[in-house]
C-alpha cells in the first residue's frame, strides 16, 4: 500500500480501527520518545515495532517539563533533548520513516510549548507533509488553541483529545465536540508509568465515556502487562503502552534491543514468542 502525500493521511487511523474490528482485538500502540535512547535510534525502533506486529506508533516529542509524565518518561525526554532532539528533528525522523516504507499510523504525543514555539499552523503543515497522522497534546484541553485546532481540521490531521476518570458529563460532552480519530482515555488519576494493576474504576469510566463518544477509544497510562491489554480489549479499541515499553528499551543492550522489542510486543499481543 502506498499513500501519496495528497491522500488524507487520517485514513491510516480509521483504516487501522476498521481492520481490527474483524480481528476482535485492541490495537496495540507502543510509545517511545523520539531521538532516544540514541539520537538516531528511532528509525530502527519503529521499523522493529511495525514488523513485530504493533498497529501504530506513538512518538514522544520531548519537552523539558513533562508534568503529566512519571519518572521513566521524564528521564527519557531529558536524554533525548540533551542529544539534540527538537521539533524539527522529530518531523525529519517521521519523514524518513515514511521514506523507509513505514505504513502504520504515526501519532505524535507531546506538550504544547514546543509546538506553539514552532508555530501551530506551521507544525501541522510540516507534520502532515512528513507523514504524521495524529497529534496528542497532553496539556492542551479542547478549546484552548484555535490556531492549532483549525489548522489540524483543515489539513485532516487528527487532534486526539484525552479524557480522565475525573471527567464529568459536562467535560465529556465538551471533549466529544472536538474529538477526532479516537479518544484517549487516561486509565487513572495520575502520571504515566507502569503499574501492576489497572484501576478498578476503569470499566465504569469507559462505560461513561462511551455514552458520549462514538469514536474508537484508546486506553493509556499504567498499561504494562498482557493481562492489562486483555482487560483493555474487553472495554476499548486500543491499548497504548508507554513507560513499560520505554523501560524495555532502556534495559536492553543495543545488540539485543530489536529482539527485546519483538518479544515485548508479541507478549503484549498474547502471541507465543519463539523469536529468541
Amino acid at each position: 500500500m502506498n499513500f501519496s502525500s495528497d491522500l488524507n493521511t487520517s485514513d491510516r487511523i480509521s483504516e487501522m480501527f476498521r481492520k481490527l474490528k474483524n480481528e476482535s482485538r485492541p490495537a496495540l500502540i507502543p510509545f517511545v520518545p523520539a531521538g532516544w535512547p540514541e539520537f538516531d535510534a528511532t528509525i530502527d525502533i519503529v521499523k522493529t515495532v511495525e514488523k513485530a506486529g504493533a498497529d501504530a506508533i506513538e512518538l514522544g516529542l520531548p519537552f523539558s517539563d513533562p508534568l503529566a509524565d512519571g519518572v521513566t518518561n521524564q528521564n527519557a525526554y531529558y536524554e533525548a533533548i540533551q542529544q539534540g532532539t527538537n521539533t524539527s528533528t522529530v518531523l525529519e525522523t517521521v519523514s524518513l520513516l515514511r521514506k523507509e516504507g513505514i505504513e502504520f499510523p504515526i501519532i505524535v504525543m507531546g506538550y504544547f510549548n514546543p509546538i506553539f514555539t514552532y508555530g501551530s499552523a506551521r507544525w501541522v503543515k510540516d507534520a502532515k507533509e512528513a507523514g504524521v497522522d495524529a497529534l496528542i497534546v497532553v496539556d492542551l484541553p479542547p478549546g484552548e488553541s484555535n490556531e492549532l485546532e483549525s489548522a489540524a481540521k483543515n489539513s485532516g490531521l487528527h487532534l486526539i483529545y484525552l479524557v480522565a476518570p475525573t471527567s464529568n458529563p459536562e467535560r465529556l460532552r465538551h471533549v466529544a465536540n472536538y474529538a477526532s480519530g479516537f479518544l484517549y482515555c487516561v486509565s487513572l488519576t495520575g502520571t504515566t508509568g507502569a503499574r501492576s494493576e489497572l484501576s478498578s474504576e476503569l470499566p465504569d469510566f469507559i462505560h461513561r465515556v462511551s455514552e458520549y463518544v462514538d469514536l474508537p477509544l484508546a486506553i493509556g497510562f499504567g498499561i504494562s502487562e498482557r493481562k492489562h491489554v486483555e482487560e483493555v480489549g474487553k472495554l476499548a479499541d486500543a491499548a497504548i503502552i508507554g513507560s513499560a515499553f520505554v523501560r524495555t528499551i532502556s534495559e536492553a543492550s543495543l545488540e539485543e534491543r530489536s529482539i527485546e522489542i519483538v518479544k515485548f510486543i508479541r507478549q503484549m499481543k498474547g502471541e507465543d514468542s519463539d523469536f529468541s
Binding site: 519537552f63 508534568l67 533533548i81 524539527s88 504544547f112 510549548n113 514546543p114 514555539t117 496539556d139
Partner: peptide, 21 residues
C-alpha cells in the same frame, strides 16, 4: 523571555528556540 506555555498558563518564558524551558 518570549511568549510560551508553562505550568498551565501562557506567559513570557525563558526558553530556547525549540520551546524547551
Amino acid at each position: 523571555g518570549s511568549p510560551g506555555i508553562l505550568h498551565g498558563a501562557r506567559s513570557f518564558l525563558l526558553q530556547d528556540n525549540w520551546g524547551q524551558v
